[in-house]
Design a binder for these strands. Structure first.
Lengths: 217, 217
DNA sequence: TAGATTGTTAATCGATTAACAATC
DNA sequence: TAGATTGTTAATCGATTAACAATC
C-alpha cells in the first residue's frame, strides 16, 4: 500500500512517549492551578529533566510553543491528549478476574483517561455469567464475537502464567491491537500487536540487587 | 568514610540489572531441561539479544565463562542469584491491603524468589488486627517498631494515590531501604532509598499512543 | 592441534544536553 | 526595541554491537 503521507513520520522513541504521558498529567495539574503559560524550563524542573529534552519531545509532533512566551497550558494539554489518544474512548477487554484483575478493574484512573473496560473474560464457572459493576463476565470462547461486537481494541491480561500465552494468541486472533500483560513468565511477543509486559519479579529483583550491593562487605 | 574497596565498582546500568534477572529465570529453565553448558550466543537468541551484550552484562561482575565452552548453567545461575540478592530471604513490608495489595500478597512468585512478606500495614479498622495467611495486619503507626523488630528491608506500596507520599516518607523514616510503589501519581523520590514506581497509566497511555497513531487518516 | 567461545576493545548507534539563531 | 523562550543544529554522552586476540 501507499505511504501514509508524504511527510516522513520519524520513529518516536518510547521514552519520549512515556514522558509525554507525564507532561500531560502535569499540565492537567498546572491548569487546575490556574496557570496559563509555562516554559519548557519550568516544566522540566518539575521532573528534574532538561528543558531541551522537553522541547525536543514536543517537536516530534509539531510546533506548540510561542517564542518568548512558552506554551499555553490548556492548548498544549489538549494537543498531547490528542497525540496520546486520550481524547477518545478505548474499549478495553480485561482477561482474568482474580485478585489482580479485580484490582485493575476497580482502579479508577482508567475510566478517567478514557479506558473503558467493556468486557471481562474469565473461564471460572463461579464467575461466569455474572457482571461486575454492569460489565459482563464472559467465557474466553466468546472473545472473537465480543471483540467485534463491542469494538474492543485493547486488552489487559491478568491471568496465571500458564494461561498467558494462549490468551495472548486468542486476543491477537480476535483482532485486539494492543495488550498490557501482567502475567509473569516469558512470552513470545505477538507480531503486529503492541505488547507490553509489566513483570513484578524483574522490578523486585532489580531492587534486591541494589539492596544486595549495599550490604556487601 | 573510606571507600568500600580498592577496586573500582563500575556503575551498573539499570538495563543490565534487568537483563540479569531475565537471564537468571532462563537459566533456571535451561537447568531443568538438563542442559549443562550454554554459550552467550544460545542465551542471547532466546531473547533476540546480541551475544556481546550478554557477555558484557556478565563481565561487569566477573569472568564466569570458559572459552571454547560457554557458561556452566547451574554455576552461572548460582552466581547471578547471588549478585541479584536472590540467595537470601528479604523481609518485605506490604503497605495497603485493598484489591491490589491483596493481589500482590497472593502472588506466588515472590516467595519463590526469597521475598517474604513479613508484615502488612493498613489502617482500615475492618482489617486491623486480622492476619492474612499468618501475616499480621498492623496499623501504620507501628511501622517504625515493626520494621526494626522484623528486620524489614523492602516495601511494596499499594495504597491510594493520596496516601503514597506520606506512606513513603514513613517507610524511609523507619529505615526501609528499597520501595516498589504501585500508587498512581507523581512522587518525590526519597533520597538514599531505591525507589521504583510502576505506573499503570503510563503503560496504558503508551499503548493508546500507538493505537492512536495506527488509526491516523 | 583445530574449533569454539570467551572477555574486551573499538566502532556504531541513538538519546540526551548545550548552544544559538529565529522570533514572539 | 530589549528580554525571553522557542525550535533546531551540533556536541556529548552512554549503551549496543562488531570484531578479534586470548584461550579452553
Amino acid at each position: 500500500m501507499a505511504r501514509r503521507s508524504h511527510f516522513k513520520i520519524p520513529r518516536i522513541p518510547e521514552m519520549t512517549v512515556r514522558r509525554l504521558s507525564v507532561y500531560t498529567r502535569c499540565l492537567q495539574q498546572i491548569e487546575e492551578d490556574g496557570v496559563k503559560t509555562i516554559s519548557s524550563q519550568d516544566l522540566a524542573e518539575r521532573f528534574s529533566l532538561n528543558s531541551a529534552q522537553v522541547r525536543k519531545d514536543l517537536a516530534y509532533f509539531g510546533e506548540f510553543g510561542v517564542r518568548g512566551i512558552g506554551y499555553y497550558v490548556s492548548g498544549l494539554k489538549a494537543e498531547l491528549q490528542r497525540i496520546l489518544g486520550l481524547d477518545r474512548e478505548w474499549q478495553v477487554a480485561l482477561v482474568g478476574f482474580g485478585n489482580l484483575g479485580s484490582a485493575l478493574f476497580h482502579y479508577k484512573g482508567f475510566a478517567r483517561q478514557g479506558f473503558r473496560i467493556a468486557a471481562i473474560f474469565d473461564d471460572d464457572p463461579a464467575k461466569l455469567g455474572q457482571a461486575a459493576g454492569g460489565v459482563p463476565i464472559l467465557p474466553l470462547r466468546d472473545l472473537p464475537r465480543e471483540a467485534k461486537a463491542r469494538n474492543l481494541q485493547l486488552a489487559i491480561v491478568a491471568v496465571p502464567a500458564e494461561s498467558a500465552q494462549p490468551v495472548t494468541e486468542a486476543l491477537v486472533g480476535a483482532g485486539i491491537k494492543a495488550i498490557l500483560n501482567f502475567a509473569p513468565g516469558r512470552m513470545r511477543p505477538p507480531k503486529d500487536v503492541r505488547f507490553k509486559s509489566v513483570d513484578l519479579s524483574i522490578e523486585l529483583e532489580t531492587l534486591s540487587f541494589y539492596l544486595a550491593q549495599g550490604t556487601r562487605a
